[in-house]
Design a protein around this nucleic acid. Structure first.
Lengths: 193, 193
DNA sequence: ACTAAATTAGAACAATTGTTCTAATTTAGT
DNA sequence: ACTAAATTAGAACAATTGTTCTAATTTAGT
């Protein structure tokens, strides 16, 4: 692993542990045993570090969404896979989710990239629900406007569950996944048959 | 209005406009036409300013929740009143909602106060739903575990809708309330009769 | 009007932090 | 082995920022 990769890895770990507000580039460098000057040789600005981490997240996210290709599976099973997969990302990139608003205000390119991602996901979800409606596993009597609103709701939950969990004082080490899973399940509960 | 109140008012306005990350105590003082030294005479630490604003929010919130006392009203109407009332708060105290995670990490007393608030609200909502179940306006076949999960979901939506709206690039000046209202309505949609 | 307390301005302090600059060292290609 | 480019350490810079300190001024009570 080269220095550049090691910086990203260390930054991600420290940001997740200590929070984005308290970790400095000096601290990241010290933790790795390199000089601050060297760190800034590889990443001129702190933003560049965070943006690179975000690109990793996007990449991992796209990989996870491949799940949605195989549609010959019970909806409940697919949902569980999605829940687990998205939780893995939320956990791996904790600090991005938890500080998402702050990061987007700070680094506009991340906000742009996110909005792009969201519009993709929207379509995927709506078409998935349509597919499972035909298979009789998803309610068919839902107006399209509500369905789109429901998709939006799922995004709010999956993107900001961690924020809520965090301000409620939850610790990621213990029962975080259980809490997330229940939240997602409850959201889907009235829509499944 | 005395200086102390004027500081709070100005701080709230600037934080809402520019964001918590960029506004400094110097800037607040300058905007008011007083010295930074004077500002810190009234509020020793920046945290004290933000905490005072949060206390105002809590006060306003409690006032709004009085709505839930009068239970002789159509559920849809009560819901609309709640939606409008909570939106007013979200809008008035934008910066607190939008930067809630950051603020709670920074000022633990606010996190504590919030958790206290949440546990109160939880009970209020569950008992309200029970009441409207009996009146035949709310589904009666919902297991209590799901109901509690649903309440949690409503909290995530009302507390983090503004975060989502903000990262999606929405502007509070235009169609913000419409967006919020639709989101809340969609969440309730499958539970109402 | 007198006096003590409250308020205010403005300079100054202290600490932090991202970033740059320079000189040394290491690495990779031939 | 030679050489140019890449990498590195460490000092230094520059700007910001919350906060404190001091002296002046205003206010409120009698």
């Amino acid at each position: 692993m080269n220095t550049k990769e090691k910086i990203i890895e260390t930054a991600l770990r420290l940001y997740n542990q200590e929070g984005i507000r308290t970790v400095t580039t000096r601290q990241i460098a010290q933790e790795m045993g390199i000089s601050a000057g060297n760190l800034h040789y590889h990443f001129k600005h702190t933003e560049d570090i965070i943006f690179t981490v975000f690109e990793q997240l996007r990449h991992d996210y796209d990989e996870m969404m491949v799940l949605f290709q195989k549609k010959d599976v019970i909806f409940q099973d697919l949902l569980l896979e999605f829940t687990w997969g998205s939780y893995q990302l939320i956990n791996k990139y904790k600090f991005i989710f938890v500080n998402f608003v702050e990061i987007c205000a700070w680094i506009p390119a991340i906000g742009d990239s996110y909005r792009n991602l969201v519009s993709q996901r929207e379509e995927q979800f709506v078409s998935l629900f349509g597919h499972y409606s035909k298979l009789g596993m998803f309610r068919q009597d839902i107006p399209i406007a509500i369905l789109k609103g429901f998709v939006r709701q799922i995004f709010i939950i999956s993107d900001f569950w961690s924020s809520s969990f965090s301000v409620l004082g939850g610790r990621f080490e213990s029962d975080a996944f259980e809490d997330y899973k229940r939240t997602v399940e409850v959201a889907f509960y009235p829509y499944l048959i």
